[in-house]
Deep mutational scan, measured.
Amino acid sequence: KKTCTFCKKEIWNTKDSVVAQTGSGGSFHEFCTSVCLSLYEAQQQ
Rank of each mutant, 00 (worst) to 15 (best):
C4P: 00
C7S: 00
L37D: 07
D16L: 04
V18L: 08
T14L: 15
G23W: 04
L37V: 08
C4S: 00
W12L: 01
T22V: 08
T33G: 14
T22A: 12
H29R: 11
D16F: 08
T33Q: 14
N13D: 11
T33P: 05
G26M: 07
T3E: 07
T33M: 03
K9L: 06
Y40Q: 10
N13K: 15
V35C: 05
C36F: 00
C32R: 00
A20C: 02
F6T: 13
Q44M: 09
C36P: 02
T14Y: 11
A20M: 04
Y40W: 14
K9Y: 01
K8H: 15
K15G: 11
T5V: 05
G25Q: 11
L39Y: 06
F28D: 15
Q44S: 10
E41R: 10
Q45G: 07
T22R: 10
Q45T: 13
C7W: 00
S27V: 13
Q21W: 02
V18I: 05
T5S: 08
E30S: 08
E41S: 05
Q44T: 08
S27H: 10
V18C: 02
T33F: 00
S34M: 03
C4H: 00
G25W: 01
S27W: 05
K8D: 10
V19C: 13
G25A: 11
S38E: 13
K15W: 04
K8W: 05
Q21E: 15
F31M: 04
T3A: 04
K9E: 07
W12G: 15
Q21S: 07
K8C: 11
S38A: 10
C7D: 02
Q45V: 10
Q43T: 08
L39K: 12
T14N: 06
Q45E: 15
I11C: 13
I11F: 10
I11L: 09
K2W: 01
S34G: 11
S24V: 10
G23S: 13
F28S: 15
C36K: 01
F31Y: 07
E10G: 05
S34L: 02
T33S: 14
E10A: 07
V18R: 11
E30D: 15
V19W: 07
D16H: 09
V19P: 14
A20T: 12
Q43M: 05
Q45S: 11
G26D: 12
T5F: 05
L37E: 13
C7H: 02
T5L: 08
L37N: 04
S27K: 11
G25P: 11
C7N: 01
W12S: 03
